[in-house]
Design a protein around this nucleic acid. Sequence first.
DNA 1: TATTGTTATACTCTATAACTATA
DNA 2: TATAGTTATAGAGTATAACAATA
Lengths: 146, 146
Amino acid sequence: MSSDLGAPPAVTRRLGYLLKHAQLRLAELAEPLYAPLGITGRQLALLTLFGAGPALSQQEGAARLGIDRTTMVALVDELEDKELVRREVAPGDRRKRLVTLTGEGERVRAAGEEVTRHAEALLLAPLAEEDAERLRAALHRVVRGE
Amino acid sequence: MSSDLGAPPAVTRRLGYLLKHAQLRLAELAEPLYAPLGITGRQLALLTLFGAGPALSQQEGAARLGIDRTTMVALVDELEDKELVRREVAPGDRRKRLVTLTGEGERVRAAGEEVTRHAEALLLAPLAEEDAERLRAALHRVVRGE
DNA sequence: TATTGTTATACTCTATAACTATA
DNA sequence: TATAGTTATAGAGTATAACAATA
């Protein structure tokens, strides 16, 4: 599916339309750049999540991304198959699995984040740098709801 | 799935994350308001599309929304079952079906667009009016790619 | 031959319910 | 009893392929 063309104002001014198509365009720009790394944007999001800060359990990670814990199982499986992450039993609670990056996972994460910056720059190219930063800040406040 | 909570900066600053969660929050706010009208946000988008300007064929409508023509068939079926739209053979080309709104469809569209404005206002509540308008303008330019 | 609408089908993404092991 | 992870399964949403009617 391609991004879009000139739909009449009534539709294209809807926030739902704009958010959906901005996402589509970003995916079109970014996915081809992730492909050489052997991962999808979704998988990189997980590497970014589990690569930063203190180790998280699968369920903690799922909550932060707003996805179901059963979905997280499959996503971690994918990354484990690629040997980019490991599951480790949590020291304090043997029910929990902490997800940590392997050396290779760390390398892919770093490369992927560089690619992400590039793809985002392509998407935001129509905007002045100041406006791009305002867009990001506005979305951030809207998502946080404050 | 709920919207999200405090994920670490590395993830929450990603544009893909922000766009997805803004969309999720908007849907959470809007869908309950559409429900009393007996339609989904998706269906209202179609009413808005086919209600504005000159009549469009299914395929023209699909192109403008960036969806597949086979998907459009099912969506128009739904609205036709609810008697909100009609399919009419195009005068000049008997292969094409122009989609037009019924009287009831027009009423639902008007009410739905009012609800949309309300839901968007709720989503954008954290922003000053000026910033909200800037956000919409920035997304518009990004989606148009210029 | 090409295009529009349609149907049948399959694939992806996601969630719900039920199981297990641990707490 | 409750929670973390897991599995099986089902439901959206979407696309691909093939067909009928029309151009």
